[in-house]
Every structure is written in C-alpha cells, then in structure tokens.
Design a protein around this nucleic acid. Structure first.
Lengths: 208, 208
DNA sequence: TGACAAAACGAACGTTCGTGCTATTCTAGC
DNA sequence: GCTAGAATAGCACGAACGTTCGTTTTGTCA
C-alpha cells in the first residue's frame, strides 16, 4: 500500500514537469521510466493505460495548483485583495512549482481542444472549476463593494484568463522580459474598469 | 515544374487544417498521405524532412493569414478603424479559412515554446512580425489622434493577443457560446482605455 | 514520337510507441 | 523469520513513426 502510492507520487511529480514541456501527448512512458530509473513495464503497472496516466497527471497538477495558488489566496480578505493574491500566485505558479514548461493547463488546453475523450473531459472539468473560482471571487468583490454591481463575473474570468495566456505567450515563446510587467498592468486596468465608478471612468454599456 | 508545385500547394492546404487540430508535431506524414490519396514516400519527396514540412506549413499558414486578415484591413483607414478590421478578421480567421482546429499559431505557440529548433525559430519570427503589425497599427492610431500619446503599443499588442487567446480558450476548449461576445467587449474596453481623453469621444460606427 | 526529367509508388529499414505476459524481488503483517 | 501479496523487472508483441531506396508512371519539350 504505502510503497506503491509513494512511487506513484514520485512518478506524477516528475510527470507534470515533463508534461509541462512536451504536453500530455508528448509525455512518454519510456522517457518517464528512464528518468526515474524504473522499467517501462514497472512504471506502466501503476496506471493501466496511458490515458489513465494523463488524467492522473492532470489531477495531480490540479492539486499542486490549488495548494500553491488557491489556498494561499484564501488567507487574504475576500474580494479584490484575494483576487490580487490569486493573480500574483497564478502568474508565477509555473516558476514557483518549478514546472520547466510553464503552466501545464495552458499547454494541455490548446493541445486537447480538438481531441475528444476522457482526458479532454477531465481537463474541461478542471478548467471550469477554476473559471468558477475566479468568477465567484469576483462576485464576492461585488458584494464587498469593490466592484460595480453590473459587472459580469464571467466576462472578468475570461478577461483574466486572457491576460494570463497573453503573458504565457509573450514570456515563453517570445521570451519577452517585459511580459510580466505588462500582465500586471493589464490586471490593474481590469480591476480599475470594474471599480464602482468613484470618479472619471466612463461607464461602458455592459448590457448591450 | 508546374505539377510539383501544384500538389505541394494541395498538400500544404490540407496540412494546415490537419495541423490546426493535431498540432505541428501531431501532424503525420502517413495520415497526410492517406487523406490526399498519395503514397507516403511520394508525399515525403516534396519536403525532404518532417521539419521542412512543418516550417513550410507555418509559412503557408502565414500567407493565408496575411491574405484573409491583414490585407483586408489595409483597405480601412489607418488607426482605430483598421485595428477594428484586424481584430474582426482575426477573431474568425479560423472559421473563415475553415481551419477545423482554430488558429494554428495559437496551437503551435504553446506546443513549440519548449521545443528549440528551426521550427520554433520560424514560428517566433512570424509571431514577432504579427506583433509588430499590431503595434505599428496602434502607433498609427496614436498619430491619427485616436489613442493617447502615452499609450504603449507593445502593451496594446500583448493585451490584444491575450483577448484572442482567452477567446480561443473559452470557445474551443470550454465551448462557451458567449466567448466571441466577451472578446469583442474586452476589445472595446481596450480601445476605450487607450482613448485620448476620458470625456470626449466620437463613437463609433463599426461595432458588431 | 522519342528521350529525358519530374513525380509518384511500394516495400522495407530501424526506432519508438503503448501494452500485454511471466518471472522475480521486495515488503508488511503474523 | 516466514509467507502472502504487492511492486518491479524482463521480454515480446503489433502498430505507427520518419526515412531511404529502386522502380514505375507521368509529364514535357526537342
């Protein structure tokens, strides 16, 4: 019982790093086994298919994500402060958790969006959950009076995700050192636009 | 002379569609040959390596992109109007050019960001060009007085790309039918925030 | 029409992939 | 310390991959 779960953990720990670089499909059992000095069949026995491995990799990554992004944010006051922590942690969770390929979900998302099956289904589930966390956090900000009442939480979630993906693209592919700064600036602008018109913001027609 | 270039065109035409779904690495010579009713070796002879094929696929996709996104925008007045056309065409160039997997560059970007080599290099080159087109278009908008003088074109480019990627994510992976509407709203907000004076603002014929 | 080049083919190569078996080694509870 | 059962290794498989090769078909132009 103990030993098996232990090595399985070790495998998944390494697998999310590998998968962040090569993608879930590029993740290969042979390479994984070599890296960990296991036999292919020995490693394979832990999962009984590659598909199962991929799904468990996703789940494991989600656990790590919750631990290093979501959980710390819960300590901050709800509403805007919590959203700020969420964003900060999100921005460098790839670096903080030492994922050499950056956010594994961003990679998996564009890899899986046209590949139907259980892996994609699980990914969609996890992403929806995360979208939900963002939207609800934003909604709490509305209740707290940090944001306008007519602001759309789903709009906010998609916008925020866009900022993240734009950052990921600029920093990882284009290697632009300014990417992080720009992402933070965009985030500030997003918050400002959702602020409850204290002054000078032209109200955008959000119901049209 | 003629015949070879002709079939090569046919191959690349189909290849960008395939690659938009499976990615550049998932693109397989055997499948490609089967689909086009060619022999593997016959098809292979046109390119002399898979790497060369991948690069030519990227170049071909870039040509199509310029033709169906950039070129039409040149007919619009420079500055904001042209940016609006660029954005509109960009949003549905996947649909318009019948790429079943959506934007092939978005897919390639997250696939290649950790895979050094000539393919990645070419992709980066193309993406930088596109970033440049956006930034310069924005700069012209500043000159025309559509945008604030202190606005940062590179910031605008990254923000815009983020909106696109957020849209891609929400619409393709999460299959959210509202994704397009939200992307357009985010774009309006982006333009509004770059507008010269918070108060006076001549709005605006061409919204959806 | 005949000759020569271009294009496409079929078969095979060496690898690598995921996945089964069967045997061996380790580990926990008595 | 023994033993059942879990964990791992060894080996082999069929399929798919990119690539090479020699041959055949097709196109082009004197």
């Amino acid at each position: 019982m103990t030993k098996g779960a232990q090595t399985r953990e070790t495998i998944l720990d390494h697998a999310i790093r590998l998968a962040s670089e090569t993608g879930l499909e590029g993740l290969t059992i042979g390479t994984l086994a070599d890296d960990l000095k296991l036999s292919k069949s020995g490693l394979f026995a832990h999962f009984r298919s590659k598909e199962a491995l991929q799904i468990q990799v996703l789940d494991h990554a989600a656990e790590v994500f919750v631990e290093s992004v979501v959980r710390p944010a819960l300590k901050a006051p709800r509403g805007e402060p919590r959203l700020r922590v969420l964003f900060d942690r999100w921005l460098d969770w790839g670096r903080a958790t030492e994922l050499p390929g950056g956010c594994i979900f961003a990679a998996a998302a564009s890899e899986m969006d046209d590949r139907p099956g259980p892996v994609r289904d699980r990914l969609v589930e996890l992403q929806r959950e995360w979208f939900g966390v963002i939207a609800i956090s934003f909604l709490k900000g509305v209740v707290e009076g940090h944001f306008r009442e007519d602001a759309d939480p789903d709009q906010f979630a998609q916008d925020l995700y866009g900022i993240m993906l734009g950052f990921h693209h600029a920093s990882r592919l284009l290697q632009d050192p300014e990417a992080g700064r720009r992402a933070r600036r965009a985030f500030e602008r997003l918050l400002l636009d959702a602020a409850p018109s204290p002054r000078s913001r032209p109200v955008t027609p959000s119901t049209s």
